[in-house]
Design a protein around this nucleic acid. Structure first.
Lengths: 142, 142
DNA sequence: TTATATTAATTGATGGGTCAACTATTGAGC
DNA sequence: GCTCAATAGTTGACCCATCAATTAATATAA
């Protein structure tokens, strides 16, 4: 195993450890899972969308979307109705309650993320963003 | 929301998308999950270790370790026995079969990781490693 | 020594993700 | 108009992680 391979391996291990720790800590901190908050965030930006377009934005399976929405609906954050122009679609929107509750979550998330990047300067943030973007692109080939 | 906050948010979203896609794609590519390969990798380095020290290296729950080892044992990759000097411990080691099979997995992983970092030059790899390290450290505060 | 704390491992409950199979609706081509 | 393909959503089976509770063994301290 070459030195270069070792370094690649180390980078992968760091990413994977981040991978393991990020979601649980995010949720303990903010009170909501990253994917679920992402769903709410998307809904906050638009008025009403289908589950499919939600699924594309949030990057999880449509089955996972269905289950999240089922719980969000049960907790009164979200409403769903059939699209009258095409009955295959289900249209989703935030309730007023949902729209007001989301603010607190977004604030918690902001603090959490700020902590993660606390010692990164402007240049580093920009570089980091760029490298993550490229890595994600490389991952798309699979 | 300030521009700075937006950038932090974007970085988080990239990491989280990486987070979501990494494990499934790794497993499709290599034929084994990252954590399970990590367990095998640790066992490859040493002769025989307790589950607890394995757990610390791999950074997953001891319950998860138990379940992985149960399956690895069933598939003949791994052997377990009680520590004769302290019966609380279970000592784990690779079988000969396990030791020979692991080589193929490591090779697959190496290719996968090389692809992820294909367009990163030396400096970028070093910087990236450094920033991931710092981010992981920041995460430890939670 | 005997009661109490600590430690290792296991198990069950839960949550979040994937994939594959299925239903229902709509679109397209003959 | 009818058949066949494509699309949206749901459900079930599975995998992998966490946490909490339990069991068993050992260490500690009165």
């Amino acid at each position: 195993m070459t030195d270069s391979n070792k370094q690649e391996d180390q980078i992968f291990d760091l990413i994977y450890r981040l991978n393991l720790q990020l979601s649980p800590k995010f949720e303990r901190c903010t009170g909501i899972s990253p994917s679920r908050l992402s769903i709410l965030h998307q809904l906050f930006e638009v008025d009403e969308v289908s589950q499919t377009s939600l699924q594309k934005e949030v990057n999880i399976d449509s089955a996972a979307i269905t289950r999240h929405l089922k719980q969000l609906e049960a907790s009164g954050m979200v409403q769903r109705r059939n699209d009258p122009t095409d009955n295959r679609f289900t249209l989703v929107r935030l309730t007023d309650q949902g729209r007001s509750e989301i603010a607190a979550y977004k604030k918690e998330k902001q603090q959490f993320v700020a902590q993660l990047l606390q010692d990164f300067n402007e240049q580093e943030r920009s570089d980091f963003h760029d490298m993550l973007r490229r890595m994600l692109d490389n991952l798309q080939h699979y």
